[in-house]
Design a protein around this nucleic acid. Sequence first.
RNA 1: GCCGAGGUAGCUCAGCUGGUAGAGCAGACGAUUCGUAAUCGUCAGGUCGCCGGUUCAAUCCCGGCCCUCGGCUCCA
Length: 653
Amino acid sequence: MDTIRITLPDGSTQQVPRGSTAAEIARRISPRLAEEALVARVSPALGSADGEELVDLRRPLEQDSRLAILTEKDPPALEIFRHSAAHLLAAAVLELFPDVKLGVGPPIEYGFFYEFLRDQRFTPEDLERIEAKMRELAAQNIPNERKLLPKAEALELYRKWGQGFKCELVEEKANEPMVSFYTTGKFIDFCRGPHIPSTGRIRAFKLMNVAGAYWKGEEGNPQMQRIYGACFFTQAELDDYLHRLEEARRRDHRRLGPELDLFSIQEEAGPGLIFWHPKGGLVRKLMEDWLREELLRRGYQLVFTPHIMRLDLWKTSGHTNFYRENMFGPMEVEKADYQLKPMNCPGHILIYKSRLRSYRELPIRLAELGTVYRYERSGVLHGLLRVRGFTQDDAHIFCMPEQIESEIEACVDFAFALLRTFGFDRYEVELSARDPAHPESYAGTAEDWARAEGALVNTLERMKIPFKKMEGEAVFYGPKIDVKLVDAIGRPWQLTTVQFDFNLPLRFGLEYVGEDGGRHQPLMVHRALWGSIERFFGVLIEHYTGAFPVWLAPVQAEVLPVSEKFTDYARKVTDKLIAAGLRAHLDDRNEKVQAKIRDAQLQKVPYMLVVGGKEAQAGTVSVRHRSKGDFGPKPFDEFLADLRREVDARVTT
RNA sequence: GCCGAGGUAGCUCAGCUGGUAGAGCAGACGAUUCGUAAUCGUCAGGUCGCCGGUUCAAUCCCGGCCCUCGGCUCCA
């Protein structure tokens, strides 16, 4: 008999008839495995993992292969599982709304979505009905079957059915004569697969919301209704995900900001513009103090530049060509156009150009907490994280080519020091290169770009920092290194950026006199570590759930007299703390201690000092910590010294 | 900018498809003088996002605009 040889992950082999399926092999191994199997991973018997692919359990195996049968224990199976859930969603929607036009339905990070075009909108009640229908179809355990059709026949099928988007997909994606389809009951979908064998296993899911999305993500295209669902192997994992969403809501800086009186956004003033209240302003001041000191220590010089400058400057820099859609419109003053600055670089360049520079001065590192204004489309604004006016901790480094790698290294090192100081210990690094397919979106020659990208790669490799290369993510004037920090609940945030620029020095004709007495062109590095103070502050609020570490807390100790009789002693304690440079506040309201504690607790004040008769007598304070609870009485001087130490050490917990 | 959902007191939210609004918390005042997450009482507080229309009458219906939220696209 014609047999093939199957090698399993444990190294054992089986001889099976040619055309056997993974499902059959699973059954031979164990009934349990057959039951749990979701999808198969096969690769040619010999050779590398290159030919590896995921296939349906029912796909016949035609040659000697290595085979792994994937179950819920194998993470790669989750994507397939979610993709099948997307098909289940589409099948349910078609049952209830047979006239919808289908778009695409891929798995996503936490589940899946499917897009539909329909005249009426899907209401929350519709979603409930759809979810119920999905559960009904899942209970019927309908098989997901793969079919092959000639391309022409496939197009004909969709044309008759009136599924124009699907025709478009078949036209574009099918480059072989036969194209694959999957059916789930009456639902038939052009799809590469693979899928799990049947719908019965899909239980732990929940339809989340419906949102508009352009067909193929392109703005000119019709807008589909995209139904999103969360989906996991088990209910426990789904619950965990929903719990994490809840946790994220609890930390939301847009809620905590006003609650803790840190900042506000005022409709009267306009969207995307931030008002820093006294407490937020104090945190910002502390952040800035740390940064300025660190900048000076690391050889930067602090500068200040105007907020509006002649439009011509922005023509020279190339912003009017490459950045116009993010700029506020120019304003006319005495017949000249002026531009509100969207970036700080031209200002720093003018300072560089203000006199002839010698190679002996380089590198010149100009730093500014520079406030910039960018026109962001209304739909993208988001609390402190995406705004129209913000302050960058910006700096531009002018240097010679042979200094570039050490400068970039110093920037990355600075960035890591900053992350540690503010309590972040996880990060991801990305290197953004240009998109070779669209050279018109970038300034400079291909050689410049290759050299610049090389310098960034060298630096990261020398520092042994793992990174992901992202093609097409570069800014118009050069490639960049971005550092994403990962917060307390595992979310990445893009903040730090270190950008290489060989373009602006050329445009502005920057030069320095070299050792040889000749004129040379310097290179430029743009870098921002927080990125924007507003954004970083937002991330900080969420990272700490508003409970800032003591060195950053707007109020470090709230003094709570037990009754009005002890206000005098409480005031003395408060004044002494303030005189020692600490941030204390006296709660002398006519309230019970319980109420004062509750309020201080809700304001996330690190230390509450309860004082009454005993304390006044002994010169102590009863210390309560916002998360560690009651510490009991402590001599006042001792508390002050402890607090001082904690602040000076910038303890981040 | 686009699609969808919203906007009622400082905050969180009620308000039965039309008869100009209510609660809790916060605030002011008074009482209470209190020991580790809310003391009691009284009072005050609203062009129901803005503008226009329909109607005897609009928080409610219609149109436009502003803002917020969830996405798309874009980004520090």
